[in-house]
Design a protein around this nucleic acid. Sequence first.
DNA 1: AGCACGCCGACT
DNA 2: GTCGGCGTGCTC
Length: 686
Amino acid sequence: MTRPGLVARVLIDSPLPQLDHLFDYSVPAELAADAAPGVRVRVPFRSSGRVVDGYLVELVDAALPGLTDAGHADAEFHGTLSPIEAVVSPARVLTPEVWKLARRIADRSAGNASDVIRLACPPRQVRVEKAWLAAQAAEPAIQAQANQAQANPRQDEPAVPTPGLSEARFSEYGAGVLEDAIAKRRRLAMAAVPFPVALPAGPSIGHWAKTLAELAVETLEAGRTAILVVPDYRDQDQVQAALDVLAPAGSVSRVDARQPNPDRYRSFLACLGPEPRIILGNRSAAYAPAADLGLLALWDDGDPLHSEPLSPYAHSRDAALVRQEQSGCALVLLGHSRSVEVQRLVELGWLAEVHPATSRHPEVTPTEFQAADDQFARAARVPSAAWHTARQALKAGPVLVQVASPGYAPMLACQGCKKAARCTRCQGPLGLASAGGTPSCRWCGALAADWSCVHCAGRTFRVATVGAGRTAEDLGRAFPGVRIIIADGDHPIQQVGAEPALVIATRGAEPIAAGGYRAILLLDGQRMLGRESLRVGEDCLRWWCNAAALAAPGAAVMLAEVGGTLARAMSTWQPESFAAAELADRRQLRFPPAVRVASVSGTEADVEAALADLAEIPHVDVLGPVGMEAPLVRAVVRFAYGSGDQVAAALKAQVVRNAARRRRPKGAAFRAAPTLRVRFDDPELL
DNA sequence: AGCACGCCGACT
DNA sequence: GTCGGCGTGCTC
């Protein structure tokens, strides 16, 4: 009893690469009413427990074979179709726009669409969904009216009182520049105003958060949805605080994976409604469903938290770029510093640069190694000039000290032979979390109570590197009587007052000071630059710029132990000049983002087979393979952006073949043969 | 993942 | 001749 002529094309919710395409089913007449594109369905499947979950992606007329969603017409299936077993609920959770985005993101990184959809569609919560469906059904007209009134403050209701904030919207960027960007749906690389701003009767926030909120409200007033993507929760809180002041009540949905599941699903469902909204969240927000998307904005795209740790590992910048291209919305990449990726897009002309109209910026002074004359300041490795600056500034208000590492002494050495102290169990480095504590291993956590040095049998430690705790101790002596506040991952502090205090923070954990810091000391420059990574310079510049942007206007920012291009980029406040130089280097070296990269790992035979398929594709070269652990080898494939689709398609085909073929050697209950693994655009790769 | 199909070695 | 080993491929 099926309705003839109607074919449901279903994406199976499975991580298996060989199932990552659409399967055709017939639609039984009794399900036809609910069987709309985007609903969750249960379908029979000749294995894995007979019935599996999936999404109904599209409905097509069987009489018109081949007329499927553009581009993804899988080879037509000829055979008898099984009927859909059930429509899980009539909620159309996978919108066509999000499906297209998920498919494209998966395709460009040889991944699974269902893995991307898992980020986009949170787990179903039956009670929440029933309540939402009931609300939809009951008086939809009144509902829509109410939402319309909420979403559009220019109508009847008076706008939320926002003295001094909304009147001067965007004035920092020159009249009309950003209004125009929203209206004409431009793509912008935008430099944030590098100072904090005080909300009326509220906390201080980064000016960038106000800009983001204003862009969103502008979009909302134009009748479209804005998605704001920020890397972490402290950033979300700042934007939320600005939206509380600027945006109409009820117009903001916050989506992030840290909310309790029912809350998360509730805000997800709210995004499905027909009325425009402001959607604020972390990297997964880039995939949120949106009614008439007008703006996609990212804050600080260089932050590694924008990089998805789950397969297929897409960066939210890439998700945003793809979605912008598909939907034609405005795109804003806002930051204090500039990532090399954004610099590339600027140089290509893909993004237009926008700077604040006033050239006011933090006054950064690079200081040399000249030690302070105060012995305690010297112990705290504070340069002389910085010490004097801090002492002066502490009369007026809070002073920020940025350090590289948390803890007391993150790295210990042997007092006798000066070599690094190692864990007797696992060879990991030993460190000290607090002043009076017992040293412990940073890898395995084991306490080193009865330690002796493997080199010289010594039994006492010396401090090899200094953490925030030790710096606090030293600075306490150098500035007697001053209140000391420590902020790091273990002691997160959002906000400090305007009273004098020394705030010692690890990079990225700096609290915001009411009215801004009166001085900022960026210590540990050399240590931060000592990390071995392609991105050190870029990362350091980002950490320093983000900290310097917490200064009050006119306050001094002292950058210790750093010279050269980085120091110049800081003191002229032109991080894009560093990004441009860096990009030129990467082009020379053929490193990302001048090219894209993919790592291919597995057994030697599997990797060789995969690489063989890439031989014909232009602008591809291969580094390795080199041996990894046990039977594994890894090769790095570099390719031009234009060859990306071919490379991804070829590697995906290999992954599918490999997944279908692999079997465990019978009898011996060893683990299964290692699979071929492919990862695109890994920021840690080179 | 599971399950059927299929192509070679010992059996009623 | 056929039963059944497990390697190979498919699941609408």
